[in-house]
Nucleic acid binder design. Structure first.
Length: 475
RNA sequence: GUCCCCAUCGUCUAGAGGCCUAGGACGCCACCCUUUCACGGUGGAAACAGGGGUUCGACUCCCCUUGGGGAUACCA
């Protein structure tokens, strides 16, 4: 019989939620959902030195924003399991798969240096793996501190069938008797993950392929403890523009920074899943569609480069799909970054402008740029020399249209467009000669939505004020 | 250095021996639409790293080379 699938995301709380970690979490969750299994999150906080509460919170924030928190909402902390770890080490000591090593750190360093000079792989030479019980007792009596090391086979190889990478074989000569328990009695990472994953009944270990080299070590621990070895799935890493592991230099790594940049969580998830996985020609893929189709064996083996251009495009697609109310709600905080809430008038104008703004936006921050003119009352300041030029050249039409508008009562975008068209026809002018200066008078810039949309959003009174004010200024 | 992994347009990818004259998407270019900027539409340039095999037939399988990445801790 097969156990129900259980996957886990296991970040260490030493910083923000990394974009690569987010994808690991995403794939772990997708696979669990696909198989009807469970997905959990375990915070690997055994490194007390580097772990911080702030980092724990930051990781939770990132996960929550992307809706990648654990299924049951409960975060497991590795430190809560430490007793199991030391217990496991003692069990291994007892059954002969581990031993006490009294070699001092300085001696280890020297060993490594020598190996490097000889051009060999630096590894522990196992000098204490066969100490006699008498020697051990003697050293312990003297109070020499010891670490517990695993006793690995000296030959042969370790093999596993990786769900994404395929068969991987590593010669045991490449491995050394690594430390299980430090001389201060604390467990090391490899011991802890194995014990925890077994304890939590994890069936599929999905993680970045920078863990491939840890896998044979962990398999030996599973075997020494008589535990079932889970399925491993090593995802290719995400690289930055420079082809190297994603870093702050090559692109943003903090997931929350993407929120600040105006990306939607759904589009970031969509983008992330397309890195190394896909559904044929489909680009816009919902979470549920992905759950339906996701298979670990379909994941690519090669690393991929993070491309902001495509993320921008995808985000724009998601923005276009949103309804105006939700979209306005998402956009609103970006107008209030400085802490001042949007005025009622501004909020009203912006929400009326949604249809006009939507097709031109790629990030939520784009709304702020284009809708600046909604934030204040009265005549806008002119953006640049070009705007000034256009406005002074077109004052005649600004005045003319203002007169026509004054008699208009129906202030819907469609009928306003009609008024503008009629005015153009009657005045014999070409559209740009009218539209551009009016746009400038209304918004201060030449790059703005259609005149009808602007007028409609601003309302009659404010529109005429802006146009009229200009008339006075000019006189 | 040693070990492991990877290799299709600039980027993300489709491709499981003949369907490939290598498909899609982003980006780029051109044209169309147009009330600026966008959106949208149409079209275009753009790739199987190289060399050997295997096979009637290789993008697809094997080997080598090259290139790239990752790992090499009493960190996780």
């Amino acid at each position: 019989m097969t156990k129900p699938v259980k996957t886990r995301f296991a970040p260490s709380p030493t910083g923000m939620l990394h974009i690569g970690g987010a994808r690991t979490a995403l794939f772990s969750k997708l696979y669990a959902k696909h198989t009807g299994g469970e997905y959990v999150v375990r915070i690997e906080d055994t490194d007390r030195e580097r772990s911080t509460q702030a980092a724990v919170d930051a990781i939770k924030d990132g996960l929550n924003w992307l809706d990648l928190g654990p299924d049951n909402g409960q975060y497991v902390f590795q430190t809560s399991l430490v007793e199991k770890h030391t217990e496991a080490a003692h069990q291994m000591l007892k059954n002969g798969t581990a031993y006490k090593c009294f070699v001092a750190p300085e001696e280890l360093d020297a060993m490594r240096k020598e190996a490097e000079e000889r051009g060999e792989m630096p590894k522990y030479d196992g000098r204490h793996r066969d100490l006699t019980p008498e020697q051990i007792d003697d050293l312990e009596a003297k109070g020499v501190p010891f670490a517990v090391r695993i006793k690995l086979p000296l030959d042969g190889s370790t093999v596993w069938e990786d769900a994404v990478q395929g068969r991987i074989e590593i010669a045991n000569t490449q491995l050394d008797d690594f430390v299980l328990l430090r001389s201060d009695g604390t467990p090391t990472y490899n011991l802890a993950v194995v014990v925890d994953d077994a304890e939590m009944d994890i069936t599929h270990v999905i993680r970045g392929d920078d863990h491939i080299n840890n896998t044979p070590k962990q398999i030996h621990i599973y075997e020494a403890l008589g535990l079932d070895v889970p399925t491993f799935a090593h995802l290719p890493l995400i690289h930055g523009k420079d082809g190297k592991k994603l870093s702050k230099r090559t692109g943003s790594v903090d997931v929350m920074h993407y929120k600040d940049m105006g990306y939607l969580p759904a589009s970031l998830n969509n983008y992330l899943m397309r890195l190394g996985w896909g559904m044929g020609d489909k680009e816009v893929i919902s979470f549920n569609e992905a759950v339906e189709a996701f298979e670990l064996t379909d994941v690519n083996k090669g690393a991929s480069i993070f491309d902001f251009d495509k993320l921008d495009w995808l985000n724009g697609e998601y923005i276009k799909q949103m309804n105006n109310n939700d979209l306005f709600a998402s956009v609103k905080p970006f107008f209030e970054l400085d802490g001042t809430p949007l005025s009622e008038a501004a909020a009203d104008r912006i929400s009326k402008l949604m249809d006009a703004l939507k097709p031109r936006a790629r990030r939520l921050t784009d709304f702020v740029d284009v809708a600046q003119f909604c934030l204040f009352d009265g005549r806008p300041g002119l953006a640049d020399a070009k705007a000034e030029e256009v406005l002074s050249a077109g004052m005649e039409h600004v005045n003319g249209l203002a007169d026509a508008l004054d008699m208009q009562d129906d202030w819907s975008e469609a009928s306003l467009d009609g008024v503008v068209k009629t005015y153009i026809k009657e005045s014999g002018a070409k559209f740009p000669a009218v539209g551009m200066p009016v746009r400038v008078a209304l918004t201060g810039t030449t790059q703005a939505p259609s005149v009808g949309a602007i007028l409609s959003a601003l309302g009659k009174e404010e529109s005429l004020k802006r146009l009229g004010h200009n008339i006075e200024m000019e006189r």
